[in-house]
């Protein structure tokens, strides 16, 4: 839906008090871009370049992927008897990707806050929405731009290190059935990378749109994220007395639990660790819940984005 404004508008001074329109000194082409939202997304992501915190967090994400690669190396080269991780050879690689995804959950949340908390709230604070929406840019473009800015950052933050790990596995473990055991792993990685990115992006644009300053959006979203963990943890503790076998579905209902759960559904493996066995959760509850959260977040943002100056007091 690309529309062009005629490049040269002939000055038509009929009835206008200003007879001479030559003061309009820009004579070049005026063409709105096809991907208008990209301008907004790019302006968000550009800011990260100078953000030291972002790079440190990203480095930590890569470190976790790297450590998992190292672990994979050891488990594959130790004799089976002494190998503490020797479980199911068939699901070993898939499980590694699932584990590393949930292992970076908290870091991803921090990155989401870094890129997303100011997405709309900073514009609210500076009354910049007026400026944006006075450009040939619709509300949807603006919102999509902000959403994609967060989504793409988080998506790449998961996808890039995952692909590096994938390449490592491909070059090292092809003979150990890396491709054969799970031929669709590549697609699963891409799908799994979308999950936290989409949930964080949707909720953060909502939280950010309703905040007057990035700080407040951060606090609100952090309270939501950790509050949901606390509450589910408590239900787990009191109702299920810490029984992982029966209580694990409850643990899946926190924000991070939803993300982990959907990723587990995508990878389709059971997690076995010394503490408990986590079965693949049933998608009937958490998938609609995740979609609902995304819709709520985006709808909240949509309702709040208006090109009206915020007058305080």
């Amino acid at each position: 839906m690309d529309f062009d404004i005629p490049a040269k508008q002939e000055p038509k001074p009929q009835g206008s008090p200003i007879a001479d329109l030559s003061y309009r000194n820009y004579n070049g082409e005026l063409k709105t871009r096809g991907l208008r939202w990209w301008v907004i997304s790019w302006s968000m992501m550009k800011l990260l370049k100078k953000n030291v915190g972002f790079w440190i967090t990203s480095a930590l994400v890569f470190l976790i992927y790297f450590l998992n690669g190292v672990q994979l190396y050891f488990t594959s080269n130790l004799p089976a008897g002494v190998n503490p991780f020797a479980g199911d050879e068939k699901t070993k690689f898939t499980l590694t990707f699932l584990n590393v995804n949930s292992g970076t959950n908290l870091l991803l949340f921090i990155i989401a806050l870094t890129v997303g908390s100011g997405s709309i709230s900073a514009d609210n604070k500076a009354n910049a929405l007026l400026v944006y929406l006075s450009k040939p840019l619709t509300k949807a473009d603006y919102l999509l731009g902000k959403w994609m800015g967060i989504f793409l950052t988080l998506f790449l933050e998961t996808l890039v290190p995952s692909l590096v790990l994938y390449l490592y596995c491909l070059t090292s473990y092809l003979d150990k059935g890396f491709l054969k055991n799970d031929p669709t792993l590549f697609l699963k990685i891409i799908a799994a990378a979308c999950v936290p990115a989409a949930i964080h992006a949707s909720l953060l644009v909502g939280a950010s749109a309703w905040s007057k300053a990035p700080r407040i959006a951060s606090v609100f979203y952090a309270a939501l994220y950790f509050g949901s963990i606390v509450v589910t943890g408590m239900v787990f503790g009191i109702v299920y007395r810490g029984d992982m076998e029966r209580g694990q579905e409850v643990m899946r209902l926190s924000l991070s639990g939803i993300m982990d759960g959907i990723q587990q559904i995508i990878y389709h493996v059971t997690i076995k660790n010394p503490m408990a066995t986590l079965a693949i959760p049933s998608p009937s509850l958490i998938v609609p819940l995740a979609i609902g959260l995304c819709v709520v977040g985006i709808a909240a943002a949509r309702a709040k984005i208006n090109a009206v100056e915020v007058v305080k007091g």
């Binding site: 009191i238 810490g242 076998e245």
Partner: peptide, 12 residues
């Protein structure tokens, strides 16, 4: 004091 008597689960 946290409940530890629930399931006999090793973790807790």
């Amino acid at each position: 004091q946290m409940p530890s008597q629930g399931s006999g689960n090793q973790g807790s």
